[in-house]
Amino acid sequence: MKKNPTALAFHGLTIRSPDPEALAGKCQALLGWQVLVRGRGRIVLGDGPELFLEIRRGRRGEPEGVQQIHLAVKHLERGRRAASRDDLGGDSWSRPLTPALGLTLRQFRRAPSPQWRKKRKRV
C-alpha cells in the first residue's frame, strides 16, 4: 500500500493581490492578526508559522486569489520528494496543483527563524 505523509492541518495561505497593503489592512481589521514579516511586495500576518496568511503582490493584471496552500504534515519523507529547510522551522516541499495554485507540505522540526517568532503571552 502506498503511504503518504499524514496531514495534520492547513496552517497557511499565500494570496496574491495587486494591493497587499490594503488587503493586509482589511485582514488585520477582521482577524486582529499582527504583521509577522514584511518584505518587498510581501506581508505575512499571523500568530507564527503554525497559522499565517501571506499576501504577495501579483503580476499586473492578475486577479486576487489563493496562490499557495500550506499543509502541515507528519512523515513528510513518505512523500519521497526532496524536502528543504525553510524559515518557518520546517522541512517542506511544494508542487503545483494548477498553473496558478501550489501546495506546500511542511513538517515542523525546529525553531523558526527570528522573523517568524512573534512574542506571545503565556496561554
Binding site: 495534520l8 503554525e50 522540526r109
Partner: peptide
C-alpha cells in the same frame, strides 16, 4: 493548535 503542529519541534 500550536500543540498539534509544533509540539514535536
Amino acid at each position: 493548535a500550536e500543540h498539534a503542529l509544533l509540539a514535536d519541534a
